[in-house]
């Protein structure tokens, strides 16, 4: 009789723990587009924004552009997830004929690098309000500098620039960092994320 007991957790697999699996890749692909799709259909969002009004409007939602990256990192918890997802999102945006070509891919990549750096600062070990806030905020600065040259904001004067920068940072924390954590925590409760690191971490916590 077959008495072979096979516990599949071979050392080879362990070593590869930080490599993306196919599921990771597919999830990142989906997250890269779901954000864009939701935004195009969210008439509600636009209402909300107009209600809030003002020229700082674009800055307020800026965090939403990097949310898929923070969320991907928060679920997959491996180095590179945020950068990969955001880069992909940028490419899809271009192919859909949407924004401004190389500009948007640059924005996507710099956002991704920022978020990535945020989680790297915590050595991909901390996944809480603090680390998502830091990642959310770090998506902002590089692109801010680049875009002020692209679009010629840099001629506007210091006070306006600082104000815009402040709003963007805040937006990064709330609409990118915190929101990702909120969504991630809801998803993991519905058992949809079986097999992802976020679910394993949660189970480990429950055991404690």
């Amino acid at each position: 009789m077959g008495e072979t007991v096979k516990v599949v957790q071979s050392p080879k697999k362990k070593a590869k723990a930080n490599r993306f699996t196919t599921v990771d890749i597919v999830l990142m692909a989906i997250l890269a587009i779901v954000n864009g799709v939701a935004m195009t259909y969210l008439a509600m969002l636009n209402q909300l924004l107009t209600a809030l009004g003002g020229p700082i409007l674009t800055s307020i939602t800026l965090g939403l552009y990097s949310i898929s990256g923070v969320l991907a990192a928060y679920i997959i918890r491996k180095p590179g997830a945020a950068l990969f997802t955001l880069t992909l999102a940028g490419v899809v945006q271009i192919l859909s004929g949407n924004p401004n070509g190389l500009i948007s891919i640059t924005a996507a990549v710099t956002d991704g690098l920022g978020v990535e750096l945020g989680f790297a600062l915590f050595r991909y070990k901390r996944w809480d309000w603090l680390s998502v806030s830091v990642s959310g905020i770090l998506a902002v600065p590089v692109w801010f500098v680049i875009s002020s040259f692209w679009f010629g904001y840099y001629k506007w004067g210091m006070s306006i620039l600082l104000l815009a920068f402040g709003v963007r940072c805040l937006s990064g924390i709330v609409t990118s960092g915190w929101l990702s954590k909120l969504i991630g925590d809801i998803l993991v409760k519905t058992n949809l994320l079986k097999g992802f690191k976020i679910d394993k971490d949660r189970k480990a916590k429950e055991v404690k």
Binding site: G2, E3, T4, V5, K6, V7, V8, Q9, K13, T21, T22, V23, G195
Partner: peptide
């Protein structure tokens, strides 16, 4: 199973003369 969906498996599986496990 068990290459992608991991877990604990015991017994014997043979498909087309290949040892799946």
């Amino acid at each position: 199973i068990p290459n992608v969906l991991e877990g604990t498996i015991e017994g014997e599986i043979k498909v087309d003369d290949k040892d799946v496990l």
